[in-house]
Simulated assay, not measured.
Amino acid sequence: MKLSDAKIGDMVLGFFALSQCELIPFTGGVRLQLEFRDASGKVPGVMWNEEAEMAYQQLRTAEVVKIKALLSSYKGTPQLQIEKIRPAKAEEYDLTELLPASESSLEELEQTVSELIELIEDAEIKNLVNDVLSDPQVRPRYFEVPAGTRWHHPYLRGLAEHSVSMARLAVKVCEHYAYLDKSLVIAGALLHDLGKIDELTVGSTLEYSSEGRLFGHMVIGYELLRSHAIKLGIADDVNIKKLLHMVLSHQGKKEYSAPVEPAFEEAFVLYFIDELDSKLNAISRIRNKPENERQEFSEWVNLLGTYLYLGRKEPAEDPSKG
């Protein structure tokens, strides 16, 4: 049973990612505050006193658990009352089935990336892109990790989906502004977030790695891309240097954590289409949240610096009335 399908009063039995496990003291005892996730959503859970303490010792390092629980309501919010719970064995579940994922399949994304690479006309840039994305240490992660953990494309295959979307935009922009170097813009779109393969981790939740927090994906991506360019003997090529600059500058401004700011047309284009694709994905996700179904405005959105106007959706009229 998916969490989103469960109704109040249902008994829920199955494997779920455990994204919170916190033992909280209160007057008279302790409670174990839990949060369970699958690809459809998340639901909090709770256990009390001796059972809570015993379960905590078993669960504090668990990523996935098997539960039997009654779905109840607490202050109007669904909550699982745990009857049985244990850590799951690795062979009992597929973690990728318990996390949200792109609507585009792995096969679709791989095929589209291959087609976009064929549009790159510069031989050395194409060689570099192929070399990076065929690296067995890179390719599986490139097509698995999210593009973020909160605002945009925060789901499995999100990085590849975001990169493909940007590369498609790049093709259109280069058709309109024919003087742009199409090879640079397409390659920049496909590789701009390359460092996220090491910046982000896929576990029971999508989180930042230690390397990601210490160095950031732009530096990680630059170093990875440059190491491949050195291996191919093309690191001193002017267009390769421009591509490396685009990876470092694609967030546009130093106050947005970019080590350097865009210095030529293709770098600016990459920054603009990254802003467009990431923000439209974030807006779409905010608009489609169930809690916003009948709201005129969203809550304050830090990413946008505003309340997003959603347009009030009036409930359908009851034909039995009036």
Rank of each mutant, 00 (worst) to 15 (best):
T201D: 13
F264C: 12
D193I: 07
L194C: 09
V260H: 05
T201W: 02
E255R: 12
F264Y: 15
K231G: 03
Y256F: 15
L224M: 15
S257I: 03
S204N: 15
K279V: 10
G216L: 09
F264V: 09
M246S: 11
N281F: 09
T201N: 11
Y208H: 15
Q251S: 07
V219L: 14
E255S: 11
H217N: 05
D198V: 04
A235S: 14
K242W: 02
F215P: 01
S204W: 04
I230P: 00
L243K: 06
Y271C: 04
E265D: 15
T201M: 08
E223D: 11
R226W: 04
L280Q: 13
V238F: 09
G252T: 00
L243R: 03
F272K: 04
K241L: 08
V238G: 01
I234C: 03
V247Y: 03
Y208P: 01
V202D: 01
H228F: 07
D236Y: 10
E275Y: 07
H245P: 01
Y256W: 14
V238W: 07
V202P: 02
H245D: 10
A235W: 02
H245I: 07
I240H: 01
G195S: 06
V202K: 08
F268P: 00
L200H: 04
P259K: 08
D277P: 00
L248E: 07
A263R: 15
L194I: 11
V247S: 02
E266A: 11
K231D: 12
F272H: 08
V247D: 08
E199A: 13
I240S: 02
D274V: 08
Y271I: 00
N281R: 06
F272D: 02
E255W: 13
E266H: 13
L224N: 01
T205L: 09
G252C: 05
L270C: 08
S249W: 08
L232M: 12
L200K: 04
D237S: 12
S209K: 06
H250N: 07
G221M: 00
K279A: 09
L270M: 12
G195L: 06
F264L: 14
S209Y: 03
I273Y: 02
K242R: 15
E261P: 09
H245A: 09
I197L: 02
F215I: 00
H250C: 03
D198P: 00
S209F: 07
K253P: 00
L276V: 14
G203M: 07
P259E: 12
G195F: 03
L194E: 05
L276Q: 07
E266L: 10
I240N: 00
E265C: 13
E255G: 02
L200W: 05
R226P: 01
V247N: 12
L225F: 11
D193S: 10
T205I: 14
I197Y: 01
I273K: 02
L243A: 05
S227L: 05
V247T: 14
F272N: 00
N239L: 13
H228D: 05
K279R: 15
S210F: 14
S257Y: 13
G212P: 07
L224V: 10
I273D: 00
E211T: 12
V247G: 02
G216P: 08
E265T: 11
